[in-house]
Amino acid sequence: MSKLDTVIHAPNRLQICAALSTSAELEFKFLKEQLDVSDSVLSKHLKTLEEAGYISINKRSDFARPRSWIALTSLGRKAFAGHVAALKDIVSGLE
């Protein structure tokens, strides 16, 4: 049975992982607008996820301006899938 992941479960981090799970990479500014949070709040959550090894942040220069691209690592995808499975188990009354 899957277990809840406390790193992912915080509301903003849950939404970050959900958005990243549906895409290959998202840019920092785009993610910030999707979540409707400030730069500092997003940076804090991204740092937590990066320290857990769930996301990778690549700074690249696109169209002559620096941009940070964020992607779920394979460990992050696995952890997110496990977290979603755990939530579904709870809802279906298995826990």
């Binding site: 509301p11 849950l14 939404q15 959900a18 958005a19 799970s21 999707q34 709870i90 809802v91």
Partner: peptide, 17 residues
């Protein structure tokens, strides 16, 4: 709470789509 979290995930993925 689990149901609400799943709904948040769903909503986030829908917005991205």
């Amino acid at each position: 709470a689990a149901k609400a979290a799943l709904k948040d995930i769903e909503s986030s993925q829908q917005n991205l789509q």
